[in-house]
Nucleic acid binder design. Sequence first.
DNA 1: ATGGTTGCGAAGCAA
Length: 260
Amino acid sequence: MQVATWNVNSLKARINRVVDWLNANQVDVLLIQETKLKHGAFYLDRFEEIGYHSAHFGQGQWNGVAILSRHEINEVRYGLLGETFDEARAISALIAGVRVFSLYIPNGRSLDNDHYRYKLEFLDRLIGEVKSQISNPELPLIVGGDFNVAPSSADVYDESVFEGMTHVSPEERNRLLVLEQLGLYDLYRAVSPDETVFTWWDYRNGAFHKNQGMRIDLLLGNRHVLSGLSSVFVDRNERKGGGKEERPSDHAPLIATFEI
DNA sequence: ATGGTTGCGAAGCAA
């Protein structure tokens, strides 16, 4: 089974690229973040005609998460437990016996911003949700998406640049550690313990060209996923140019392959 | 050089 996660930064702006990428890669499941589409407005037909089912939790203008799958999508849930549904940042479903989450964790903006508190609370709600899923130890579980957290100093191009900023703070990283302690493995790190790769590069300052990025898009999996895991990689080519009509997202897809 | 880029939506905010 192949599962990918990709923050597309507006599905409207990226639809052709996403369709082309799915045709070329044929992953079983694609977790999408930042659709920026209203709930009920989705490219169902575009995906159906290339063999993908869709589930979308949208709000319009900002946020929006989705799951595409070549297999049937069942038991769709919108949001996290105890969430007030003010923003569309979480969706999950049961696909081929695997519970799959597509998450867009709040950015946080700055450490003194209310949005940062919201980010930490969102991560706490996610921890609660994972606890409830882990209570069924037989169920394979994938928790993927744009976490807006770089797990360690090996996941940013220069730790000193991010001192005092979001994405690297101990409060955020400790919450990822809690997820790990609950039995969720960082699948990229599991296969590449010592490498530095990025999934996001700022649009500004030629950051991609200079490889000034962060690894903030993650696929976490429980032991059932880990035991069959064979490869995890970032499709860096998808961050590359194209003309004005085919601009890239500022994130690249992350793809994991495992036997289940 | 407190700059630079993209998306949304039609000015300025978010990332």
